[in-house]
Design a protein around this nucleic acid. Structure first.
Length: 153
DNA sequence: CAGGACTCTCGCT
DNA sequence: AGCGAGAGTCCTG
């Protein structure tokens, strides 16, 4: 079974996903769409419908590297809530800056909800566009996209 | 060795 | 209080 690629819509953006079964290899935001399938839970999430992202796995969380531990910690953040870079850092015994680096290089946003990690005094960053982070957080706060499994890993 | 999606502490308004 | 500068910090390419 080969790796599948496809995209779905989130607001003005298209969410490109490379995946296979429950395992997600890459997620990224782009201006243009991409023909092909997307995991059901991501489809539901982007549509603002109840979704349980914990049923998916990300390649980013595998292993014992610092980044992998950071990604696992971030996956444990409940839907609709946020933590700071510093809190994540203290949780796994590293520096805030390292958490920032990990988020910036996160290969699978949404599956690893890096948008729930904010700076202590402001929203922090998000690429390719901070507006996406705001939109994701706003959606999680007002809609009922959260499911039991989300936040536990 | 350089450079981040940070945070703290200080010193000034 | 609120804001800006500087140093500390840790990981990756």
């Amino acid at each position: 079974m080969a790796i599948l690629t496809g995209s779905c819509r989130f607001g003005l953006w298209h969410v490109h996903v490379a995946w296979q079964g429950d395992l997600v290899y890459q997620v990224r935001f782009a201006r243009e769409g991409l023909d092909g399938p997307v995991p059901e839970e991501i489809l539901r999430y982007c549509a603002g419908r109840p979704a349980d992202l914990s049923t998916l796995e990300s390649v980013a969380t595998a292993g014992e590297s610092t980044f992998a531990r950071i990604y696992r910690a971030v996956r444990a953040v409940p839907c609709g809530e946020t933590v700071t870079y510093g809190e994540v850092a203290r949780l796994i015994g590293t520096a805030p800056r390292a958490v920032g680096s990990a988020m910036a290089k996160n290969p699978t946003p949404i599956v690893v909800p890096c948008h729930r990690v904010v700076a202590k005094t402001d929203l922090g960053g998000f690429s390719p566009d901070l507006a996406i982070k705001e939109a994701l957080l706003a959606m999680e706060r007002r809609r009922r996209v959260c499911m039991p499994g989300d936040g536990r890993s």
